[in-house]
Amino acid sequence: MRKNFPLAIEGKNRDRILDAVKHDVRKYVKRERRRVLPEGADYWDFDCRFGVNKEAAQEVHLSALIGHIDTVAREGGDQVYVEILAKPGHRKARPPGAASTDADMPDDNQDNLENE
C-alpha cells in the first residue's frame, strides 16, 4: 500500500476522516497477515514509511504508525503519506547461554537476592 490520505475534506468531519484513515491502515495490515506464508517464513513483517508527502517519508515501525498519523492530524496537517509493504519474516532464536533479565526470575528468587 502506497497512498496519500487527505485529512481535510470539505463537508466532512476531520475526526471521522482520521478514523477512516486509521481503519484503512489496520484493514490492510489485517488482510496482508491473512495471506498464506511462503515456505520457510514464520510471520509477515512490514516495511513502513510515513510522512506528510512521499518525498518527506521516513521509515517507521508498524506499531508507531497510528501514533504518527495522530500527531500530524493534531498539528493540523492536510494530508499524510503511508507506505506499507509486506515481506516474509523469520524469527531468530535466542543464542544459548544468553543472560536472563530480572524479569525472567521468579519473585521468590528475587526476594532472596535482595535480603542477602
Rank of each mutant, 00 (worst) to 15 (best):
K22M: 14
F5C: 02
E32D: 05
A41S: 05
V36W: 06
D47H: 14
E83H: 09
A86N: 09
W44N: 02
Y81S: 04
V52T: 15
Y81I: 05
F50W: 02
A8G: 04
S100M: 08
S100T: 08
N112E: 14
D42W: 00
V36P: 01
R16E: 15
E114D: 12
I17P: 00
D24H: 14
D45H: 12
D78T: 12
M1T: 13
Q58L: 11
V72L: 02
A8I: 15
R35Q: 11
L37S: 00
L7G: 03
A20R: 06
L113D: 12
L7A: 08
D19P: 00
D78P: 00
L113H: 05
D19E: 15
K3N: 09
R14E: 07
F5I: 06
R2N: 14
Y28A: 09
Q110A: 07
P88H: 03
N115F: 12
D24A: 15
Y28T: 05
R33H: 03
D15K: 14
G40D: 08
K30H: 13
P38Q: 08
P106D: 12
A57M: 00
R49D: 03
V80H: 03
K92R: 11
R26P: 01
K3R: 11
G11I: 10
G51A: 04
Q79I: 05
D111S: 04
I69E: 03
K87F: 10
L7T: 02
D19L: 13
E75T: 10
V60W: 03
N13C: 11
G77T: 05
T71M: 14
H23M: 11
D70C: 07
Q58A: 13
D102C: 06
